[in-house]
Computed example of a mutant assay.
Amino acid sequence: MAQRLNFAGRKVLVTGGARGIGLELSRQLIDQGASVLAVGSNKGHLDNLAIAFPGKVHTFAADLGEPRGATSIAEWVQEQHPDCSVLINNAAIMRHDDLTAGTEGQEELIAHEIAINLIAPLQLCATLLPMLAGAPGGGAIANISSGLALAPIPDASVYCGTKAGLSNFTRSFRDQCRARNLPVQVTDVIMTLVDTTLSKPGSAKKYPPAQAAADVLAGLAAGRQEIWVEKTKLLRLIFRISPAAAYGLMRGH
């Protein structure tokens, strides 16, 4: 049986922790007795979060798309918050582009999206692992991937590719931690379509951010290796039966 994770008294690093799902994660973690290290690129949003929860939130503004974005965050955590024991890689961007159109500056836009969605989470996992493994009671890592890692949509190919990469990395990284008997829970969170600014407006029903965050934290607390959120549970079943049907379903959206 997986060991349950109690957030009370823990310090948790949440990337993208002041908007969308990340904001709800921060709020609910605080409600459960944790201290939150919220990072993001918008200092105004971070300041608002710190004002709302005085003494319970520490903030750090950094752009994960920049070459030293993840490094600067890791250095801040290691130097000022070495008691951090949980990492939630939540930050992401989604560009809705047709890569066949030859958009000006396309190479830079692709590189920036990959840096935020894939490179930075991998770097934070590897760099902070020794600290997380040395935490009393062990540590935990949650990487927020997506159902689009299984069945991509046509107009967000870079995003879908990065989430597939993050999901596969999480599985492999978990195996590496196990091989060394490191006391770190490594979890892949397969996220559904959530009502945030990440996705385009449309008629599709979107999951509430507060409920998505609650599902993530409940799954982590239960020690789950994978957390399938809302409709991704059905997508998983469809994909097992017929990958083509799952692809077709997502293209229909």
Score class of each variant (00 low, 15 high):
27 R>Q: 15
28 Q>I: 10
30 I>S: 01
30 I>E: 01
30 I>V: 14
31 D>P: 03
31 D>W: 11
31 D>M: 13
32 Q>N: 12
33 G>H: 05
33 G>T: 06
34 A>Q: 01
35 S>Q: 15
37 L>S: 03
38 A>K: 02
38 A>R: 01
40 G>R: 09
41 S>T: 12
41 S>P: 02
42 N>A: 13
42 N>W: 13
43 K>A: 15
44 G>R: 14
44 G>F: 12
45 H>C: 12
46 L>D: 05
46 L>H: 07
48 N>Y: 09
48 N>Q: 15
51 I>H: 06
51 I>S: 04
52 A>G: 05
53 F>P: 03
53 F>S: 05
54 P>L: 05
56 K>S: 09
57 V>R: 00
57 V>N: 00
58 H>G: 01
59 T>A: 12
59 T>H: 05
59 T>G: 04
60 F>C: 09
64 L>G: 07
65 G>P: 04
65 G>Q: 06
66 E>W: 04
67 P>G: 13
68 R>E: 10
68 R>I: 02
69 G>T: 02
69 G>M: 04
70 A>W: 04
71 T>V: 09
71 T>H: 03
74 A>Q: 01
75 E>D: 14
75 E>Q: 13
75 E>R: 07
75 E>T: 11
75 E>K: 07
76 W>Y: 12
79 E>N: 12
82 P>T: 03
82 P>W: 03
82 P>M: 04
83 D>F: 02
83 D>C: 03
83 D>Y: 02
84 C>F: 04
84 C>Y: 01
86 V>F: 11
86 V>N: 04
87 L>I: 14
88 I>H: 11
89 N>F: 08
90 N>G: 09
91 A>Y: 07
92 A>E: 01
95 R>Q: 08
95 R>Y: 06
96 H>Y: 00
97 D>I: 00
97 D>N: 00
97 D>T: 01
98 D>K: 04
98 D>F: 10
98 D>R: 09
101 A>H: 11
101 A>W: 08
104 E>Q: 11
105 G>H: 08
106 Q>V: 14
106 Q>I: 15
107 E>F: 10
111 A>I: 06
112 H>T: 06
112 H>C: 05
113 E>V: 05
116 I>G: 06
120 A>E: 05
120 A>P: 05
121 P>R: 10
122 L>I: 15
122 L>E: 07
122 L>N: 06
123 Q>S: 13
124 L>A: 04
124 L>E: 02
124 L>N: 02
125 C>R: 02
126 A>F: 08
127 T>A: 08
128 L>C: 10
130 P>C: 11
131 M>R: 09
132 L>E: 04
132 L>W: 06
133 A>S: 15
133 A>P: 07
134 G>S: 10
134 G>H: 07
135 A>P: 06
135 A>G: 11
138 G>S: 12
139 G>P: 04
139 G>Y: 03
139 G>A: 13
141 I>N: 13
142 A>F: 12
143 N>K: 11
143 N>Y: 13
144 I>V: 15
144 I>H: 02
144 I>P: 00
149 A>E: 03
152 P>D: 08
153 I>H: 00
153 I>C: 01
153 I>Y: 01
156 A>L: 01
156 A>K: 00
